[in-house]
Design a protein around this nucleic acid. Structure first.
Length: 287
DNA sequence: CTTTCTGTTAGAAA
DNA sequence: ATTTCTAACAGAAA
């Protein structure tokens, strides 16, 4: 499940590999992933365009093109993957393709961008919740405006954090998952942040003390930064821009640890549903 | 075999 | 206006 750290890892990988590269061909294998555009319109806008910038806000990737009014938004949702392969690697014939690497394209490959040098960017998405959306560069301001404050930006201050959460009649979990309040947190990092902050996820935001608020603010930023350092969390589906898994799994304290002993106090990790999501916590460490 | 669960977000419903 | 619920889809688990 790509959240901010996973999407940022992919963004950095792609920045390294496809910047300034010209797209010579687009193979759109599922009209559903370009559901906001016609397949013809999307292909026409992107073919022949060169990558000027790859940006990100929250979990949303933004591709901009050189000398073009167009940009493309890409959201991976639950199971989307963006994997870059050089011509050599995508052919799969040689020993450059290890056994652990899947041959691409496969059944779930929904889009293939081919660059001038023969390298390719594969978009795989088994559930097809992810999408590509054509947009004008001048509309990007409106796109950014829909997002709340994001960890690791200069807007992420304690004052802004308190301001964003203030007055919400909802659980900590629901508010932290709300991309319009905080940008980039998903199920994994909300549960981990709540654990680190010692706050139960089903607490109402209005019940939080100043110190608890501060803890959530600080731990949220610390965990997101640490997860980026570890190149994200691979629980089942996520891989980086080169198809490799993330390393944060071994640092998880509560997520997907139901029934296992808490690393801090030994109590059994609990799982309930909060804000329609599986939610993990330690009854001993969190209040 | 069928049913349930997974977790993101838009859009609908409350 | 704000919050909650459901649909979109495919596959793993029950």
């Amino acid at each position: 499940m790509p959240e901010l750290p996973e999407v940022e890892t992919i963004r950095r990988d792609l920045h390294k590999h496809i910047l300034n590269k010209k797209i010579v061909h687009v193979d759109n294998r599922s009209t559903y992933v370009t559901r906001y555009d016609t397949a013809e319109g999307f292909g026409a806008a992107v073919q022949g365009a060169s990558i000027e910038a790859i940006d990100r806000i929250g979990k949303l990737l933004i591709f901009q093109f050189i000398e073009s009014p167009n940009a493309v938004l890409c959201h991976l949702r639950m199971t989307g993957q963006l994997i870059y392969r050089t011509e050599d690697a995508s052919l799969g014939g040689g020993h450059s393709l290890s056994k652990t690497k899947k041959i691409l394209p496969h059944q779930h490959t929904r889009m293939i961008f081919t660059f001038e040098d023969g390298s390719k960017l594969f978009f795989n998405d088994s559930r097809q919740f992810g999408y590509f959306k054509l947009i004008q560069k001048e509309q990007l301001g409106e796109v950014y405006k829909k997002f709340g404050i994001e960890p690791l930006t200069k807007e992420y201050t304690f004052d802004n954090f308190v301001q964003a959460l203030k007055g919400k009649q909802r659980s900590v979990k629901a508010v932290m998952l709300d991309q319009g309040v905080l940008a980039g947190f998903g199920n994994i990092y909300v549960d981990e942040t709540c654990f680190a902050a010692g706050v139960l996820p089903d607490r109402l935001v209005t019940s939080l003390t100043e110190e608890e608020m501060k803890k959530l603010f600080e731990e949220g930023q610390r965990i997101i930064a640490l997860a980026i350092e570890q190149r994200g969390t691979t629980f089942n589906n996520y891989v980086d821009g080169k198809g490799k898994k993330g390393n944060f799994v071994r640092l998880l304290h509560v997520y997907q640890r139901k029934g296992k002993p808490c690393f801090v106090c030994g109590a059994t990790i609990q799982k309930i549903t909060v804000a329609q999501r599986g939610t993990h916590f330690c009854l001993c460490c969190q209040v």
